[in-house]
Design a protein around this nucleic acid. Structure first.
Lengths: 211, 211
DNA sequence: CCCAGATTGGAATTGCCATTCCAGAACGGG
DNA sequence: CCCGTTCTGGAATGGCAATTCCAATCTGGG
């Protein structure tokens, strides 16, 4: 049953130490460039220059551009989630939610509200053009949404949140507000929209607080 | 004072009847292709074939690809706002807000949740690469947000909404929820996220209803 | 130390894309 | 009906991007 269709990872190529290092260097350079100029606006020669590698190295490690894009998607997901920890794993109070979102807003202001969300931008650009990227990005959003949901669930289990609250729905709503708020803020070059969007959803969650 | 920096529209080229028709045909074909494949994924030859025109016609009417993209941005904005009318201009009750968002959700389901939002996708792709497109898209979102805000303001003026409600902030939050919900739904190929996102924000608005 | 496999450099190939150019055909105001 | 302007066709150009190739150089286990 598991042999009918290979899961596409039959053999993982052995990596030596310098190999792993240049591989990482390529991913980081590509992620940076694609964040600023989009996937379509980033060429292999661009990445070569930024990572100080030759073309053959990129194709050696990733097969083709799509393979590299996939690696970038997962790298950005790991990076973004990591940089939100430990706040992300402790979203079990209204204050924690507000602090977490405020930190993102400040970070956004710090870069002039340019660039938007690393994952959201990739998602928008790749959703219709790269099916496997879309799948991975769907998983990325799930990984992001889960800790939100868990935090709310913990609040509810402790009796701090009404039983009437649908924590699954609320977690999705907050993530959506974050994404939509980031997009509006990116276009308007002002974090106001982001702040208003997350504030509205957290205010709404707060109405379920039992006191 | 108005002569120091030309507003970039010193002379509008005269258009004959067939000229206006092919011009429109180009914009429509380009909008369609760019919606499905992104701006970067749509080449001039693609547009030529879809609109049944020669290259010189495209460059005659739009100067270059960026000019065409700008025209597409404004075309999509007009089209999207028009297709939401008359609901969009009567968002002055909770039921009206829900009906309006539900219609968008059904429309999304009807196309398999593919494609996302015409304006949001353009915004994400162009925000960092085309300054004038970003400006226009910022205006597009303003045009979209305004009727929401007006509807809420009318409710408030009528005394149906508490004075404590910040209609400006709430309108932004709803638009952000729509954008973020659409993005999540596009990636997940399920309108659930969109429905949860807008539902949360409208529920929140409802808490301000005076009864 | 030795060799298979991993890693690298750099040029060559192929194809497509944005844009230009040059006539020629249609239009429409006077 | 005439002429400047608009509109159109189609080929040519120049550049760049993705990918391939091959030969050379490392690396690490036995």
């Amino acid at each position: 049953m598991n042999s009918s269709v290979a899961v596409e990872k039959p053999e993982r190529r052995r990596l030596t130490e310098p190999g792993r290092k240049t591989r990482d260097r390529i991913i980081e350079a590509a992620a940076e460039l694609m964040f600023h100029h989009g996937v379509g606006g980033t060429s292999i020669p661009d990445i070569q220059a930024a990572a100080r590698v030759s073309a053959s190295q990129i194709y050696h490690y990733f097969g083709d551009k799509r393979g590299l894009v996939l690696a970038v998607v997962n790298f950005q997901t790991d990076t973004k989630l990591d940089q939100q920890r430990p706040l992300l794993d402790n979203l079990d109070s209204i204050d924690a939610l507000r602090a977490w979102c405020a930190k993102a807003a400040d970070r956004q202001d710090a870069m002039g509200c340019a660039g938007g969300c690393e994952i959201g931008s990739l998602a928008s650009e790749l959703a219709e053009t790269d099916p496997s990227a879309r799948t991975d990005l769907s998983a990325s959003f799930d990984r992001w949404e889960l800790p939100i949901r868990s935090g709310l669930a913990r609040m509810q289990a402790r009796g701090e949140l009404s039983e009437r609250a649908d924590v699954v729905s609320l977690a999705t709503a907050l993530l959506a507000a974050i994404q939509g708020g980031m997009l509006l803020s990116q276009v308007r070059r002002s974090s106001t929209a982001y702040r208003h969007a997350v504030s509205a959803v957290i205010d709404h969650i707060e109405t379920y607080v039992v006191r």
